[in-house]
Computed example of a mutant assay.
Amino acid sequence: MSFYSVIERYSDFDIEEYFSGVTENMVLSSMRKENLSSKDFLNLLSPAALPHLEEMARKANKLTVQHFGRTISLYAPLYISNYCTNHCTYCGFSVVNKIKRAQLTLEEIDREAAEMAKTGLKHILLLTGEAKGITEISYLADAIKVLKKYFSSVALEVFPMDEEEYRILKEAGADSLTIYQEVYDRDIYREVHLKGGKADYRYRLDTPERGAKAGLRAVNVGALFGLGELASEAFYSGLHAKYLMDKYLETEVSISLPRINPAEGGFQAKYTLGDRRFVQFILAYRLFLPKVGINLSTRETEEFRDNLLKLGITKFSAGSKTTVGGYNDKNQSTEQFDTSDKRSVEEIVAMIRSQGYQVVYKDWEAIW
């Protein structure tokens, strides 16, 4: 069994028709349960739940404190290459976009890492475009070994790999994997992924599971909101996280809610996830999956991120640069997307502490 079989069970499911029958009592009943079913999760994602966000928020805060304490873990992305062989209509790295491209040498990666390490961060997310023939596994393994001199945790957000390839990078020092399905709707997936390995829906869908099988300690999933129908994408993202949590008990599972930001190529999102529904989705995730990590990136604005801190979030990105070579102010490439929260790590730390929360720079390290 794979998550694809879960998707298949909902192939004829009409989420809008289901929502039309959701009542206030159904929402309240689902909200107050200790263990929620997939239908309860749907009820909390429905329009009928919107008048009850305050009660959902109180429970979400309580559950988060219960399982995570009053803590926020920090991380930052490190882009080492933006070469890509995929034609994805929504991405600034798409092969058809005439942008400035670069790939760092190991010496340049060392300099970037040294600059990032000055902030005190110990967890980083290693990013590349999806160009397997250009960004080789051996190059990534060598890059990880460089980064491990500075950071206790190196997570991967690169092209999907086979299980054995993840084992190679785990041996090099990587411990976590972020891989967004982007859009769970298969028809839309085909429409927006026109060329390259990313066009293989099933291979990408099974990627988080291959990472878990390879022994990576943490896996992060999510949908890119704006591509598909909003509640449907939130629903399948939540089911994906639950599937992984239920099957891989030793794997730490997290979920992200990236919203499309302006990128090279001029893509216009078909769906717009407003702030209120964004909050609703976070709260629904927390009530449905009390132990799931929830990440919030610098795609979101300062004020919005500050207000969301107590509603179920467990991880913040801070001081993010989305260009290759960005931390040394030697931007060698076009940025993947525009960040909205441009505060420094120090400013993010001060904000978190001002709200009575503890900043976690490091919560894991391998014992070799």
Rank of each mutant, 00 (worst) to 15 (best):
A114M: 06
E302M: 15
Y271C: 03
N35C: 04
L104K: 03
G92V: 08
H87A: 13
N82I: 11
L224H: 02
V154P: 06
L45R: 00
V253Q: 01
L287G: 12
Y361N: 10
L28V: 06
A269C: 09
Y243R: 00
L78Q: 10
A318W: 00
V324K: 00
Q336G: 11
G228N: 02
E112Y: 07
W368N: 12
A214E: 04
L45W: 00
I282G: 13
M116Y: 09
N86G: 14
R9S: 14
Q280H: 06
E107R: 09
R259H: 04
R343D: 06
K62P: 13
V324I: 12
E264L: 07
E34F: 04
G326E: 00
L140W: 03
G226F: 02
K39W: 11
E24H: 04
G356Y: 01
F235W: 01
A234G: 10
E112Q: 10
L257V: 15
Y236G: 07
I134Q: 03
T314V: 02
M56V: 09
D329M: 04
L308E: 00
A57N: 05
C91Y: 03
G228C: 10
G197D: 06
M1N: 09
Y184T: 02
V95Y: 10
F151C: 04
F3Y: 05
S297R: 01
E300S: 02
E165L: 00
G238N: 01
H123R: 14
R32I: 12
T272S: 15
P47W: 00
F235H: 02
V65L: 09
I144E: 05
F235V: 12
R167Y: 04
E115D: 07
M1K: 03
K39S: 10
Y357N: 07
T298G: 01
E250T: 10
V349F: 01
S20H: 13
A350C: 05
L125A: 04
L106I: 02
A212V: 14
H52L: 01
I15Q: 06
F13D: 11
I352F: 00
D12C: 12
T64V: 05
F281A: 09
G274M: 13
G265M: 01
K62T: 15
Y139P: 07
G69Y: 06
S254K: 09
G197K: 08
I188G: 12
S237R: 02
E191K: 14
Y79R: 01
K170F: 12
D142C: 14
G293V: 07
Y166V: 03
E303N: 05
Y203L: 11
L227S: 08
S20P: 06
G69I: 13
S237L: 05
A284N: 07
A234W: 00
D14H: 06
I168F: 06
F278E: 03
E17T: 13
I255R: 02
P160M: 09
Y150K: 05
E17G: 05
G238Q: 00
S2Q: 09
T339L: 09
T23S: 15
F3S: 02
F288Q: 08
I7M: 12
R277F: 09
E16L: 06
L140G: 15
T207I: 07
D185V: 14
